[in-house]
């Protein structure tokens, strides 16, 4: 029992890294994803094509391969970051495609009349997006974004295979050393994941309610 408590406290410290990875890439992929969605509905065809290629390519590639190309490919063309930054980059590139698709769907669900009215008062494309389209899209995108970010939370464990000492990496080390309590260690890790994911779910439900009220 004491042995397990020791392991859990080590694990909890590793979860700080998992949470850092999750939150930072959530914020970054929100920014990148919204930009990508905006480009995807923009009146400039090359922008639309570029984003559409990016989204289709990265979204349908296994995350491990996105990591591999990011972590080992970029240094070969002279781009070198820390393994944490690479993990952040890979997770962001991957998650942003899901955010982009979700936001795009949210944008396309808005009645065209809203957009025409906004254009007719002289708002530019960016202003139409910023003041009319995105604020309305937020309402419909919060629930699917919650799933995307919970997936991101769990996906961050892929970083364990690429030099980042997050929860799963530390769990693997613990399992090797504490071979008498392998299942307990994994159970404890899963329990922490579940607890945190449920917490995120709560936060999103709260956000969703706020987005609904702030009409």
């Amino acid at each position: 029992m004491n042995e397990l408590m020791g392991v859990i406290s080590t694990l909890l410290r590793a979860f700080v890294t998992t949470l850092e990875l999750t939150f930072l890439s959530a914020i970054l992929s929100l920014v990148v994803g919204i930009l990508a969605a905006a480009m995807r509905v923009s009146p400039v065809p090359p922008l639309r094509w570029a984003v559409s290629v990016y989204v289709r390519l990265v979204r349908n590639t296994p995350l491990t391969i996105v990591f591999f190309i990011t972590v080992f490919g970029l240094p070969q063309v002279g781009v070198n970051f820390s393994f944490f930054s690479f993990a952040l980059l890979a997770l962001t590139l991957y998650t942003a495609t899901f955010v982009a698709e979700t936001v795009r769907a949210g944008i396309q669900a808005i009645p065209i009349g809203q957009i025409e009215a906004a254009r007719s008062i002289g708002l530019t494309f960016t202003q139409v997006l910023a003041y009319v389209v995105l604020p309305q899209a937020v309402r419909s995108v919060v629930p699917p974004l919650a799933s995307t970010f919970i997936a991101l939370f769990k996906n961050s464990s892929i970083a364990s295979a690429f030099g980042v000492a997050e929860a799963i990496s530390v769990m693997t080390n613990m399992v090797n050393v504490h071979s008498t309590i392998v299942l307990s260690i994994m159970g404890a890790t899963a329990a922490i994941y579940v607890a945190l994911a449920l917490l995120f779910g709560r936060a999103f439900t709260w956000l969703e309610r706020k987005a609904l009220i702030a009409r």
Binding site: P111, G113, Q114, E116, A117, A118, R119, S120, I121, G122, L123, T124, Y131, V132, P135, Q136, R139, R215
Partner: peptide
């Protein structure tokens, strides 16, 4: 966009911005 703002349009379906108050609808432009 500038020229558009000089000719205003009133639509059959009103098309008021549904996420804004009436006042904000009028002040946005």
């Amino acid at each position: 966009a500038k020229l558009r703002s000089e000719v205003a349009m009133v639509f059959q379906q009103f098309n008021l911005f549904s996420h804004l108050s009436i006042l904000d609808n009028v002040t946005l432009g």
